[in-house]
Amino acid sequence: MRKITARTLLLVGVFGLLILQFCKERKTTQLPVDGQEENRKIRELHKYDSYVYSWPKCEQNTSAANITGFSSLPGHIQDFLYYRHCRHFPMLLDVSDKCGGASQSAEVFLLLVIKSSPVNYDRREVLRKTWAEEREQNGVWIRRLFISGTMDSGHEKNRLNKLLELEHREHNDILQWDFSDSFFNLTLKQILFLEWMEKNCPKARFLFNGDDDVFANTDNMVQYLQGLDDNDGSKHLFTGHLIQNVGPIRSQRSKYFVPVQVQESESYPPYCGGGGFLLSGYTAMVIYNMSKSITILPIDDVYMGLCLAKAGLGPSSHMGVKTAGLYVPSSNTDMYDPCYYKEIILVHRFFPAHMYLMWHRIHDPKLKCGL
């Protein structure tokens, strides 16, 4: 009986030591899995700004399923309606000092706000070397921000987030929130940026807001804005490719399909094409304040028009903004002849290699146009 008891005690002791060692190892290796280490890093990165990681996860509005005809809608529109009410998301990357602080932000003459998905690394790199380079131009400062959400899930999402983090460490120019970076969430991206601007860059004089696949002549932007009678950004300005007398597209085959469950009205207010437009800091803050009481519409440029209309303001047309593409008079003419691009403000849809080449060609001192 005594031998059995001693053996039993020995086995229990060994088993206890194994459990203790397992718990130590588990405690060490689980930190990255359950997010504690990641949260610690985020808190350290943003220890002066609890806002960036404090928003809770937005819950699905299940009552959206009761909307008439909901079950017949495409999945991405159903998702939009489920989460349409969500306006706050945790911030993953921040540049709170981009404008030198809220009180110093008037030193920023032109803030480039560029919508970019995580996968578009090549576009961002080319823009940083060309028209979106941060610099002093004609005695005023140009600053740059890319605004982004997240894409995919699991390992691929983590890889893309890591890519943006590495870019951010080097360039300090990315704002990223933890929401799905999709076409129907472009309006959300705009609202989140304006919320950030109100806090961190409220006195910036002018903004360029556009896509990462446009060719923009920021030299010409500065020249145009400096030539305004009121060029301190304190007056209304919203200009670009003016679109008016149109309404929602009801065809499900269209990328821009908006069903009546999303927008009942058959008409849109005047707005500027979302590929790129210029606005004053004053107007940016007006749009943000109006957005607080306007239900989100997935087409972001139309939503801007709605906010302007509610404020009793409107957009204007600028002949140098070509979001629908540039007209070339002859099929025998090189559509990438730099003389067509030297005087414009922007043209939509450029490949990165063409962007890089065009920027250098229009700045070639040997370029001769109008002969």
Rank of each mutant, 00 (worst) to 15 (best):
G233T: 08
S234Q: 12
S234Y: 08
D229Y: 14
D213V: 02
L192M: 12
L192Y: 00
D213E: 12
D219E: 14
D213L: 06
P202K: 14
C201K: 06
Q226S: 11
Y224H: 09
F215L: 07
Y224A: 08
F208R: 07
G233Q: 09
Q190G: 14
G233K: 01
F193I: 08
W196S: 11
F206D: 05
Q223Y: 15
G210E: 00
E198Q: 08
L192W: 00
L194H: 15
R205D: 10
S234R: 11
D211L: 02
G233S: 03
K235Q: 13
G210F: 01
A216N: 01
L194K: 12
Y224N: 07
F193C: 05
F215K: 08
A216V: 11
A204I: 03
T218E: 06
D232A: 11
G227I: 00
F206R: 01
N209L: 09
N231L: 05
F193A: 02
D213K: 07
Q226C: 04
K199V: 11
Q226G: 00
V214S: 15
M221C: 12
D230C: 14
D212P: 07
S234K: 14
P202I: 10
W196K: 12
F208S: 02
E198M: 06
N209P: 01
Q226F: 10
N220P: 09
V222M: 03
Q226T: 04
D212V: 02
Q223H: 14
T218P: 08
G233V: 03
N220A: 07
L225N: 05
Y224T: 08
D212A: 02
M197A: 10
D219W: 08
D230Q: 15
T218H: 08
A204P: 00
D229V: 15
L228I: 10
D219R: 04
L192G: 03
M197T: 11
S234W: 07
I191T: 07
L225H: 03
N209V: 13
I191R: 03
S234D: 11
T218K: 03
G210P: 10
G233R: 01
G233A: 07
Q223I: 09
D230A: 14
L192P: 02
P202A: 11
S234G: 12
K235Y: 06
A204H: 04
N217S: 09
D213F: 09
K203Q: 14
D230M: 11
K235S: 14
Q190P: 03
Y224V: 11
N231T: 09
D219N: 15
M221F: 15
L228W: 06
E195N: 15
Q226A: 07
K199L: 12
F215C: 06
Q190H: 15
G227A: 05
E198D: 13
L225P: 05
D229A: 10
L225E: 00
R205M: 13
E198L: 13
V222F: 05
N231Q: 10
K203D: 10
D229E: 08
S234P: 01
D213T: 10
M197N: 09
G227R: 00
E195I: 14
C201P: 01
M221Y: 12
D211N: 13
F215I: 01
M221A: 04
C201Y: 06
F193E: 01
Y224R: 14
N220Q: 06
L192Q: 06
K203A: 10
N200E: 15
N217H: 10
T218F: 04
D230H: 15
A204K: 05
D212F: 02
E195A: 15
